[in-house]
């Protein structure tokens, strides 16, 4: 979710196989310096991709001797996914970050073969997308301050996952501003 000179990204903590819950501490958001990647979908691909991006991101930093901007990272995600066009990773990634030069919020989402969906308001992915669209559509407004953005994204996620049998078991929220990142763990109902 984009706010005024800030962005927020959040995920639930459940890892499950259909109806069976396996882990209640499976984070789906990964940090690449100041770029944040949310990865939902098949757990094995979430792990594989998060590690592949870790490697590609590190290689970029060493080769170019500078940090990666969010839009660059988004294109990296896109091309990496399209490389597997005919045998794709089963994931729904989202990327969020602040541009280090302009300070402008950047958020986008992808389909599993890398088509980018740029947005200026919010991006959702995963099993509770229908519910999340409804929540975000009604709660989000332009130019939210960090604390208000936190409240908005948290309420959107929490209420959406409560109406989805496959999501929940805790949640994590990151609020990213120019000079500070706050990570908060949300206590939720455990069913």
């Amino acid at each position: 979710m984009a706010g005024k000179d800030c962005i927020a990204i959040a995920c639930d903590l459940r890892l499950g196989m259909q109806s069976v819950g396996v882990s209640s501490n499976f984070e789906k958001i990964f940090e690449y310096d100041s770029v944040y990647l949310g990865l939902t979908g098949l757990a094995t691909d979430v792990i594989t991709l998060s590690e592949e991006f870790r490697m590609k991101h590190n290689m970029y930093k060493m080769r170019e001797e500078r940090r990666m901007e969010p839009d660059t990272f988004a294109n990296l995600v896109s091309s990496s996914l399209y490389e597997k066009r005919f045998g794709p990773y089963f994931v729904g990634p989202i990327v969020a970050g602040l541009n280090s030069k302009t300070g402008k919020p950047f958020i986008c989402g992808f389909d599993l073969i890398g088509a980018i969906d740029f947005a200026k308001d919010f991006i959702v992915a995963g099993t509770a997308t229908d519910q999340l669209y409804g929540m975000c559509e009604s709660l989000w407004e332009p130019d939210l301050e960090p604390e208000d953005l936190f409240e908005t994204i948290s309420q959107a996620l929490l209420n959406a996952q409560d109406r989805d049998a496959l999501s929940g078991w805790g949640a994590v929220v990151y609020i990213i501003t120019k000079d500070k990142v706050v990570k908060r763990l949300l206590k939720t109902r455990q069913d």
Partner: peptide, 15 residues
């Protein structure tokens, strides 16, 4: 560590 045939790996207290 719990790893299924799809290669999802998680550390758990019990599994």
């Amino acid at each position: 560590n719990w790893i299924d045939y799809l290669a999802a790996n998680v550390e758990l207290p019990y599994a």
